[in-house]
Amino acid sequence: MKIAIASGKGGTGKTTVAVNLAAVIQGSCLIDCDVEEPNAALYLNPKIEEINKVELPVPRLKEDGCSYCGLCARLCAFGAISVLPGSAAGKGTLLVFDHLCKSCGVCMGLCPERALKEELRAIGTVETGNSCYGTFARGQLDIGEVAAPALIRVLKQKAIYAPVTIIDAPPGTSCAMINTINGVDLCVLVTEPTPFGLNDLKLAVEAVRKASIPFCVVINRSMGDDEIIEQYCRAEGAEIAAKIPFNMEMARRSSEGGLLCATGTVFRDYFTHLAEKVQKT
């Protein structure tokens, strides 16, 4: 089963829940789909065994054949091509702006001279390996790149799945998040008992419902009174699968890259219970 850990808001403890869940389920798989800020490895210390570049095709001029008619530049919806016609003084120029290109193939497919070919350009990496808890995969988008959904699609193909796969989703309800939760069996929405947490939980619920994915809620940093979230969940018929209390020791340990589920600690129970619950749904 594939379980995505998501949250409308960043910093609610999504990664903390994801890595600790993966650690209490023996032989699990963890996929870090937060490709702008992949952080799960800081906690699970996986040994990376394979690094694959993720590449997208961009157009390039073949050695000859271009008449500099400019059709490709006019057809490109993204303004990714510029064609400057030649003059008596010399040949024309064709410029490609790689960052604007979405690899749709219009320019190459519709060139009357068939003068364009495609070349692969790296936008990031997908890494796979093993931690002592199971298999691990993560994607990392190069700085300044914007094609997170494309990278996530490749990452989800390359990962080595286990009977239980935990997917750390990007924060928010962006296109990248929608691509991440596409095809999972359950979404765990992590929130905190603040007005921010509630506001963003509502957005996340809207997104998972639109994608028709079952979900449950985890309240992190509970300070006892969680009525703000509980009231909403009651009204929406959403299950609260766990409450993780706010605790200075937990905050410190997590901030230093420690897992909270080391054997013999009181914190471990929160995650073993949550693991049982989510596997039952």
């Binding site: 400019g70 530049a73 006019r74 303004g79 510029s82 064609v83 400057l84 702006f97 604007l100």
Partner: peptide, 19 residues
């Protein structure tokens, strides 16, 4: 026309005046 483009407004406008 490029003023309302989703992306690439600069190159589209550049293409227009160069053309």
């Amino acid at each position: 026309e490029a003023a309302f483009a989703d992306g690439g407004a600069g190159t589209k406008a550049g293409n227009f005046i160069a053309g």
